[in-house]
Design a protein around this nucleic acid. Structure first.
Lengths: 336, 336
DNA sequence: CTGAAAGCGCTTACAG
DNA sequence: CTGAAAGCGCTTACAG
């Protein structure tokens, strides 16, 4: 698999490698005769020349590679995000190299090191709990980084988030207005700020409301989500609830909860109303259409790439955080 | 973001760059005094040296990058595959760069070119219809490639598939034995061989059976799957079917079909039995557990990486195809 | 035990 | 209009 190089073309064309380089890169500054230009293109074509970007990278210090670190690429939210990022990146000539951190700060760090050694031009990361130091180090050496989805307290990395607290507060207020006897918040036991924001938004709405309504929380770990949600819903919700609302703070939690409802033949919205964060195709198999909070994934991807590309090209030490608005998609699951 | 290089270390340590390189790479052949060795490690540590793999790649002609081309990384099957490939690749020191072809032969070709320019050591691809030529070219220049999931007629690229036809035939036989009045095969209108294999397996079982049963086919395009499946099921299955079986040749089709059943309150397995190719979390929201054909994704990923790594390191022009066995996971949706 | 040197495939300021 | 040359950050056969 010996590839042909610029040198081969130069030899065949009887010109210098410099000339070949100028022609192939269509540089304007240098005027090359139409004749040699044509000859060079022809030869390149016939010997099937493809440029070695590695060599170019070494010289230009740009690889056109972007590192993407998510918690798990097989997670629906992240794979959809990855897809959107891929498209936006490609438009600017970047390709994505990916890694999954598994919510492990050590692995997260390892991935940033690996990517940095591969000389990626920048990184798009969903940081995990405990990776503050790693992000600080990257910022310190001015490595272009943007965070997506998540952020961490105490480190100011440019990044994209949505208005988690606000949208949670607003949607919770809607629930409160409907006079349920009981509202159950289903969330994660976590330190991740963006998830806590959702919880705080919920609580803020509850506290500023004058309604008397029983509030319950179900908080589960990241493992065995389905089992935990099922057993806790069994305790908190029971088998034949009435006039109750469930507020799920992620699509995974929602799917776990909905499967409990299906198994126990609990009717939505007759017995229980449902709101969930994030969409998923899975909702389509539920008998009632689910009301959910939709994140603007495409816009998030676009902004992330834009922000990163800006850093890469200007070295402006942007401390810019972009907050986009999520949107409530109201469906039947929430019509009392 | 000026990084320190081997040269900086050499200068600070008062040795040559060669010596630094030997020490950092722990080469055995060269014996370096414990003293300079220690000094070099210390200096590397304090100036926060990280190797530039791009430079190394240029010299060694190995990037430790693998290109992955799937139809769409946001597709559940492919994102799960990507995750498994990522893990297996990492064990051998490779990282993955990804691209989605969108079933477009031109884009597929572009991606292979892009990846080849990035000097990936090899590619793992799910080829699209019409990309025979592209694959042949890669084979011709001996670029290490393996196919996953799919394969193409007429080009012998090493790759991993499952026993699509066989498992389809076997599972269809099970259906036939249950004496349904009607069996409906739901598949794609496609030229992709691995999907046709599923269809052929189905048909083979039907033809070699002595039962008299009404057989119907629903074939849909890749766009608007849900709508097409719904409208065709409405025609073929109706609103209150009896003693009918549905055979879905992918999880996407199954989800579309199941949502039709939910919407029309058709009972599984009382009225209709269901078998589907591939699993998905989505099945969990269906009232009845779904019987499905499980692909051994982890093993497929492992074999793919192994096969590719073999090609990369030996340049053995392997024409090896690996066929792994899928497995029927029998659940209630298929208990008459 | 260590270093000088060539070279991987490019780019680009400079000279002519 | 074109070329000689330096250099990006490494590796590695060779010499001493």
């Amino acid at each position: 698999m010996k590839r042909s190089s610029i040198k081969d073309i130069a030899k065949l064309a009887g010109v210098s490698v410099a000339t070949v380089s100028y022609v192939l890169n269509r540089k304007e500054g240098q005027r090359i005769s139409e004749e040699t230009r044509k000859k060079i293109f022809e030869i390149a074509e016939t010997i099937n020349y493809t440029p070695n970007k590695i060599a170019k990278s070494l010289k230009t210090n740009k690889t056109k590679l972007l590192g993407l670190i998510v918690a798990d690429i097989s997670n629906e939210f992240y794979s959809l995000m990855a897809r959107n990022l891929e498209d936006k990146a490609l438009k600017l000539g970047y390709t994505l190299i990916i890694g999954s951190s598994d919510e492990n700060a050590e692995k997260f760090k390892k991935l940033t090191e690996l990517f940095s050694q591969q000389q990626v031009d920048g990184m798009i990361v969903a940081p995990v709990a405990g990776s503050e130091k790693t992000l600080e180090n990257l910022m310190h050496i001015k490595y272009p980084v943007v965070t997506i989805d998540r952020y961490l307290k105490g480190v100011t990395v440019p990044g994209i988030t949505i208005n988690n607290q606000e949208i949670a507060e607003n949607t919770t207020s809607l629930l409160l207005n409907k006079n349920f006897d009981k509202i159950i918040y289903i969330g994660y036991e976590t330190e991740l700020p963006h998830l806590l924001d959702r919880q705080h938004g919920f609580e803020k709405a509850v506290h500023s409301s004058k309604k008397t309504v029983e509030i319950r929380h179900i908080l589960v770990g990241l493992e065995n989500i389905a089992e935990e949600v099922h057993s806790q819903l069994e305790n908190t919700l029971g088998k034949s609830p009435e006039n109750t609302a469930l507020y799920f703070s992620s699509n995974k939690l929602a799917v776990a909860g909905l499967s409990y409802l299906v198994k126990n033949n609990i009717k939505v919205p007759e017995q229980v109303s449902v709101i969930a964060f994030d969409e998923t195709e899975t909702y389509h198999l539920f008998p009632t259409e689910i009301t959910y909070i939709q994140q603007p994934i495409e816009a998030m991807a676009e902004e992330a790439i834009k922000l990163l590309d800006g850093q890469i090209n200007n070295y402006t030490a942007t401390e810019k955080r972009v907050t986009l608005s999520a949107k409530l998609i109201a469906k039947a699951s929430f019509n009392k």
